[in-house]
Amino acid sequence: MHPATEKLVSLLKEKSFAVEACDYAQRGYHLEIDLEADRLRELAQCLLAEEMYLVFVGGLHVAPAIEVVYQFASYDRACRLVVRVAADGDNKVPTISDIYHGANWHERETRDFFGVDFVGHPNLIPLILAEEDVDLKPLLKADDDLKESAALRWVTVEEQPETEEKADKD
């Protein structure tokens, strides 16, 4: 791990954020945090001070509550951090658009696609979707397709099946 990343990890642990290291080769990011919504703004402030930029904000429709996924990265070393925050019963998550100004649009997009209400956002109107589609929420899953949050987490990796015999002939 890069020394600056180690410093970041110890800083986050000091503030009692549950940061965990990940296998970069398979997951493409180095650190992950499962976070309570009320500590999100504190974390964002901390990451901005450490010069991590916001890669994206995205939603994920899972049971029991919609999750909002944030990815942060560093400009000067390979360091990616994924933060997952579960929305509360009313689909509310605090905004970080006043800390990371780039989050403004990402949050509006997540509001468009998932109906997540970012509390404190200055202008939470449709960005990508048309105004009349404000309640469309196209990325919400049908009940049959909806999975539990825990069912989408990494478990011990199974071996990939060997090349199918059919494919050999191509």
């Binding site: 398979q26 997951r27 493409g28 990011y29 890669v55 990815q71 990265a73 990616r80 994924v82 069912a151 989408l152 987490r153 990494w154 478990v155 990796v157 199974e158 990939q160 099946p161 090349t163 199918e164 059919k166 494919a167 050999d168 191509d170």
Partner: peptide
Amino acid sequence: AKAPKKLKMPVGDSSFS
């Protein structure tokens, strides 16, 4: 490479930039 026509992905998340 010879990759299976129907990929069987493991459960989990992954990122590529």
